[in-house]
Write a protein that binds this DNA or RNA. Structure first.
Lengths: 226, 226
DNA sequence: TTAATAGTGTCTATCAGACAGTATTTC
DNA sequence: GAAATACTGTCTGATAGACACTATTAA
């Protein structure tokens, strides 16, 4: 039909989680060329053959499940990178997503030796394959910026959580401390929290209220990419 | 090397201009299948052969020049759309950009009969090929949102312009009226205007000051996509 | 002087940050 | 009651919108 060189197409998610009070990203040790022996983002090819991926979102969901073992509660498109020399095999186009997965939903035993969750402070010790260092910088900018006006960080938390939990997650993502009163006023205006009426009694002080995200807020947010 | 079906890759810019006090988009009448006889966004294939496009931005620049005859002063990536059925020829991936071009820089005579600048209010009268109607909706959201916190609309104006010109451009993009005092205070805080010391004397009232965009502001802004 | 727009000043409502105060629980 | 954190109230400075005021030019 059209008879010229087609670029390679991959989908490469930057998968974030929170663990040990650190923001971490999943990296994979490559076992084949190019960049054998280097870490890279977990990626996958678009399966365009009949009866396989129907949309690019199908590809992302499949890759996320293959690499983490779970269905990611959230992902969104970040940017598409393409050039003749970002992959030594030739012209390549990488459609990059960011995804957030709560650590507690992951099964650590499922991860093989070639998979590694690296906290973002330690990333400068890694020389990643392809242009993945700069892609991760881009992803960090996006997630930190988006935290300021969205409910993104709830995707790191379990179903029920306290406002203090929520504030800590925001602080870990941003890397800065926040004022409690101002934070709660802002969360209140965003109007996405629902009081469960329950409290967390596993504390030796006044038990905090447990909240969850309103069903409408989640659906509204998810519809960004469906 | 890798032996499976590769998707079709195209780059499809949504090219905006301002003309006759209307925000308009460039559409092309297709003269071949699929969607022959329908209007679509102007698009192009990535030329991945040796010595052609080196990066995806090269592809965009080339397509923009081919379709408008000029070098676009601004473009940025919008989103990438991919699925098995958005193009009847099979799995396809479209990397979509938005671009802003000032009307006065265009040469109307260069446009052939198959090219048409359509104002966005009239778009609902067109049933476009592919998924281009929904792509344009996406692009409109982006440009209207970005106007609120950026200098984007200056790319519709000539080098020197008045603050009233600038406000009118913002109003046309947003589709709403703005308060003069509030607008000027906001522009002042963004700190990207430089007083040329000149005035526009082609008026029958107090001649307004002419401003231009600070070189530093332009470079800073442009570096978003370089 | 009039007409028209340029350009500025003021008032108000809103909101985020700083910080202090009150409330509630366990031990 | 002490300790600890939950949760709320108040002050302040910054800002957007509404609106009116002064300035400047051509005719």
């Amino acid at each position: 039909m059209n008879d010229f060189v087609k670029p390679i197409n991959t989908v490469d998610p930057v998968i974030f989680t929170l663990h040990d009070n650190k923001l971490k990203i999943l990296l994979i040790l490559r076992d084949k060329e190019p960049f054998i022996g280097k870490y890279t983002l977990p990626g996958g090819w678009v399966h365009a053959n009949e009866g396989q991926d129907l949309t690019i979102e199908d590809t992302v969901k499949r890759v996320l499940k293959e690499k983490t073992g779970v269905d990611a509660p959230y992902f969104e498109q970040l940017n598409t990178f393409g050039s003749h020399n970002r992959d030594p095999r030739g012209w390549s186009i990488s459609i990059v997503y960011i995804s957030l997965i709560p650590w507690h939903s992951l099964d650590e035993n499922l991860f093989k030796d070639n998979a590694k969750w690296v906290d973002i402070e330690s990333l400068n010790q890694y020389e990643l394959g392809f242009d993945h260092n700069s892609i991760i910088d881009f992803a960090l900018q996006r997630i930190r910026n988006k935290v300021n006006y969205s409910i993104l960080p709830v995707y790191f938390l379990p179903e029920k959580f306290t406002q203090t939990d929520l504030q800590k997650v925001y602080e870990l993502v941003l890397g800065t401390k926040l004022d409690k009163s101002a934070f709660r006023k802002k969360i209140a205006t965003l109007n996405f929290l629902e009081d469960t009426g329950e409290r967390d009694f596993n504390v030796s002080f006044r038990p905090p209220l447990l909240f969850k995200v309103k069903e409408t807020a989640l659906q509204c947010f998810r519809s960004n990419f469906i």
